[in-house]
Amino acid sequence: MCTYLTEKLEISGSAKGPSGWIRVSDASVYFDHPVHASGEHTLNIDFLNPPMGPSARVAVELSAESARALAKAIAVVLDSAPPGLA
């Protein structure tokens, strides 16, 4: 789409990339052309640590179908966690 249409959110956690684990504080979510995945458009998520610079990024590019399945799986797992934990 090349629209820069992007959801940005603050997050709290860690992610592992080529240089090892990093704290991540921000995420960008967008549906656009991928860099590496096949398919014309993918659901892309960047997990970021902006103070560490643009290279502090763990990225995924998922087909729309697998992204929806992932979102559903995340919700199922969180909803089934013991009360008070998630």
């Binding site: 820069y4 860099v35 960047d46 643009p54 290279s55 990024r57 990225a59």
Partner: peptide, 12 residues
């Protein structure tokens, strides 16, 4: 930065 990381930063 690598081009894809730079593009992600510019997008954000």
């Amino acid at each position: 930065a690598s081009p894809d990381d730079a593009a992600a930063a510019a997008r954000a």
